[in-house]
Design a protein around this nucleic acid. Structure first.
Lengths: 188, 188
DNA sequence: GTCTATAATACGATAGAC
DNA sequence: GTCTATCGTATTATAGAC
């Protein structure tokens, strides 16, 4: 059982790393087994299928992301909460770039075996942003769109940073994203 | 030759539609041939490989997106330009949801045969936003991050709308995104 | 230019020894 | 619990007729 848990861990880690660059469909079970340092038979001892392996991986990753956002918001309300959430999401993207890449590529796929699971987790993460936005003075029914906008801004800017401009500092990127949320339309 | 062009068109359209839901790797040449209404041999007569077919498809789609952004900016400067670009990008996402989905899933992949091509086109599109942002009063070196943020906000909010809440109106979504860019931090 | 038929390989999954 | 060996099928690509 202890042995099974470390094997499971190695398999999940290998699966995430490979899928981040090759995509889930482009990652083969042979490759996962090789990178994890186990035989392919062990993959199927621990997970019933390729789909179930990747569903478990996404559930663990996105679930823990949603948890960390709830924790980061804590008792904060309104704009300070938004600011804390943006920084926390950016930190999590930096700490787990493979998961962030995978989220960007899987979140709008509607043909996956794990569609329901991923939808629920995505909704959990967005709900934290939505709650914070709702605490500012915002017209009714608009917080959902704004939550997606903020999440999208952080996700794309964060990945752009990690993938194409890794020489920048984290604070620089956070400041740029937060500045985007304060772009002011001129008063006419 | 005329016949070849209509065949090419049918193949490219079928490839885009399939890849939007199944991903590029998950789309087979047999499926493309069937949806396009041609035999598989015709795919290989018009394109030298699966990779080259999808590179051509992305080049056409993302290239025309970048062109339309340049046109939308026109002679506008600063905030009015940003507003026009946000609306134009949202319109293009709505008019070509399959391409938008594909962009979200392919833009951070670094193992693709067409990586260079896609990188250049992505850069072209972001440059239009960056120019508009640079025309507002923004600290030096920050416009690049802000351009990614705005692009990400529109892309994710737009896809969220089309995939999960299609009952909303386009103006409602545009207003929500623009409001996100004007979220004000309280003055303390 | 377009078709059908087929070659060559890659991949998910399973069986059975240890 | 983990391994090796293998089965069956799906997939890219090509050959050759029309």
């Amino acid at each position: 059982m202890a042995r099974a848990n470390t094997t499971k861990r190695a398999i999940l880690d290998a699966a995430l790393e490979l899928a981040a660059t090759k995509g889930i469909t482009g990652t083969t079970m042979d490759e996962v087994a090789e990178l994890a340092g186990v035989a392919k038979g062990s993959l199927y001892y621990n997970f019933s299928s390729k789909d179930q392996l990747f569903e478990a991986m996404l559930q663990e990753g996105v679930g823990s992301l949603a948890d960390s956002l709830r924790t980061a918001k804590g008792e904060l309300r309104g704009w300070p909460a938004i600011e804390a959430l943006v920084r926390q999401l950016l930190d999590r993207i930096a700490a787990n770039a493979p998961l962030a890449k995978l989220m960007a590529s899987e979140i709008f796929r509607t043909d996956r075996a794990w569609q329901q699971t991923l939808f629920a987790l995505r909704h959990e993460a967005l709900a934290v942003f939505e709650a914070a936005i709702d605490e500012t003075e915002v017209p009714a029914g608009r917080a959902g769109i704004m939550a997606s906008s903020v999440f999208g801004a952080v996700l794309l800017a964060g990945l752009e940073w990690l993938v194409f401009e890794p020489e920048r500092s984290r604070d620089e990127v956070a400041a740029g994203i937060l500045a985007t949320l304060n772009t002011s339309a001129p008063i006419e």
